[in-house]
Amino acid sequence: MEDLLNAIVLLCNFVIVPALAYGAQLALGALGVTLIYGILRFSNFAHGDLMAFATMIVILVTWVLQDAGIGIAPLPTALLALPVGILGAIAISLVTDRWVYRFYRERKSAPVTFVIASIGVMFMLNGIVRVVIGPDDQSFADGSRFLLEVGEFREWTGLKEGLAIKMSQALTLAVAVLCVGALFYFLQRTRAGKAMRAYSDNEDLALLSGVDPARVVFYAWVIAAALATIAGTLYGLDKSFKPFTYFQLLLPIFAAAIVGGIGQPLGAIVGGFIVAFSEVMITYAYRKFLLYLLPQEWVPDGLVQLLSTDYKFAISFVILVVVLLVRPTGVFRGKVI
């Protein structure tokens, strides 16, 4: 019995808790991608770099606050800096929309033109981030590191395995729940949110009913930018900030959006967790877990790891391809590009 409990705690500590936090971060990113797809109808390749840009602002403001001795311990100071980051991200999104995307929208260009333009935006944002903060790892987490420490947990329960919950993980889940709640309230209950859903479902009908397209696009960028800032900051607090890593997040984020059904907010959330759980579960080494459950001689000698962590991209990719081949609309019947 105790072995079983130990095994469950072990799995919680190394798989379930990290995957929940990672899934929430991916979900917030994927919500932004899916909203932009639903309203502007293109895959925004600059989303990863928008996250990096916004997180960079948060980091800079955090540093200023830290120097001034302002903090909200035990919570990280970055939370205080978050609103500034959101404003910065919204500003840059609206500027790029005004100067880049609006032109193609008015000419009703092919979606692929938008994608190429977003690659241009991606380069520019990437350049700005690297010039301002450099290409290296930056740490900006402060406050208390753990909500629950391994030692404490062991004392409480008397188990051999410990469970640790990082502050950043708890924070990620709490903030993600708040954001998703607010987003769904906005989309379901407010006039502007309904206009957005109508526009996403059927552009012509929405226009006929008097929906102002400029407003809808404005809201889409504001929400996507805010979510990107929050996702990027939480990811940075949980792991670390490195511009290139944020660019690479693009793949799992797209995978999450497509798995859930592109253009479907609920799908983006489910997709985020599907991708995160597959990634963590497939790259986890199960040897110790099995040792608790099976007699020693049954457990194989190796790590019992299905795939080394080096290949975590492969997992997002395989999920993506399987979904596209089996159910191209995604779990929640989204659009087919």
Partner: peptide
């Protein structure tokens, strides 16, 4: 279609490199 092919090839190139 175009967007999906882009994302798929992006993923493949990362896998090859890994």
């Amino acid at each position: 279609r175009a967007d999906y092919l882009a994302i798929a090839t992006l993923g493949i190139s990362e896998i090859v490199l890994a």
